[in-house]
Design a protein around this nucleic acid. Sequence first.
DNA 1: TGACGTTATAACCGCTTTGTAACCCGTCGA
DNA 2: TCGACGGGTTACAAAGCGGTTATAACGTCA
Lengths: 224, 224
Amino acid sequence: MKILSADDDKDLLALIAFTLSQAGYLVIKAGDGVQALRAFESEGPDLVILDINMPGASGFQVCEAIRTKSRVPVMMLTVRGEEEDLVRALELGADDYLTKPFSPRTLLARVKALLRRAGMENTAPLVAGRIRLDVDEHTVQVGSNAPLRLTKLELRLLQMLIANAGHTVSSDRLLMQVWGHKGSGDRQLLKQLVHRLRHKIEIDPAAPQMLQTAPGAGYKLVVD
Amino acid sequence: MKILSADDDKDLLALIAFTLSQAGYLVIKAGDGVQALRAFESEGPDLVILDINMPGASGFQVCEAIRTKSRVPVMMLTVRGEEEDLVRALELGADDYLTKPFSPRTLLARVKALLRRAGMENTAPLVAGRIRLDVDEHTVQVGSNAPLRLTKLELRLLQMLIANAGHTVSSDRLLMQVWGHKGSGDRQLLKQLVHRLRHKIEIDPAAPQMLQTAPGAGYKLVVD
DNA sequence: TGACGTTATAACCGCTTTGTAACCCGTCGA
DNA sequence: TCGACGGGTTACAAAGCGGTTATAACGTCA
């Protein structure tokens, strides 16, 4: 598991890196925003930890840039009392935050929780009812049919639905999880994506058996 | 999602309750520490917001008491500059804090983040008498009948009534909670909505057993 | 660069939900 | 007895939502 950590405070950066690597994570270090972005491109980390106050590009800018191309979990580091910064970070699509100072134990717990939530911990195929999703291969297999290739977005959508199989997931939450930030105005995107996914996994896409609509609420995956 | 908010400042409490209920949360209000603890026991909220300075039992005491029996996320409200309080609160097991004054936007962002962190984004069904309301699914189940789909507004109305089950809720308050504004002309909307909801949940909508009218006052949900 | 697969944007349709208005019918006080 | 009032009911219009299709923009890879 690869984690990118960016902070201009050398000591703190070292502490973070030490803590995480002790726990078995591979840590990429960046001393400022520009380095962080470059490292993000080249390394493709599974999680990003950003300090808000950095020379070069601020944590905000980095977060925003990352969110335009990836849904990787982002954790922001703030100093105590800067509520506005925090809100802005969360609205930019950050997934969690930590106020300095924090203990290594806290950091580790939060990183683990974040990875768990993002479903990045298990690469084993996800199974729900007759659906079998291979995240690495980007494929689904329905029943005993031949495996089908899914696109990046289709995969994320299905992943979310499987993770909450049997329960309705709200459109807003799907929007958030699949695209990142996004305003509530982007319902259209979800509509489309659901449509395409249905055509791939449903026997009769016009009468969905598995990927069902919960009008006014969202969508849910029905399993036997 | 049920949130317990405790503060002795009536205005602030009202603001918090308004902000959160607008966002779709169900808010239980408490004016002091003792009320807060009692409400915690009886309501089993999914998140607790505690002011530190309260008559009766302080936020610290309430937080401590809650922590002996529950891992529910707790957010503390402090006044700026009271670092001591903050540290103590976090040591007592509080999960987050907010310094007053704060904006509704900030509050909402933090509450959302906290719920996300705790993995509590899915609500447990609300139950009152023979009524079982599933907020995620937008459905009600009355007795052992098949679950019925509710619309957004119907859901909100029923949510408010269940939250105050057994007590009359004034029309103005319902108007406020469901639509977010009140005006003399909007009475009609409530009339309509009640009518529609009755048709869905009452056995004989013309002679309501559960959703009863309190003439001149408002409506109340009667439970056994 | 061009071809291809993927994703975003827009328009349309039918249905549901919501808003607006009118009317009905009791109650209550003048 | 009348008329105002509050609440229930009915009818209909307006707005919104989800499904569908078409088309444009984007990215990637040869």
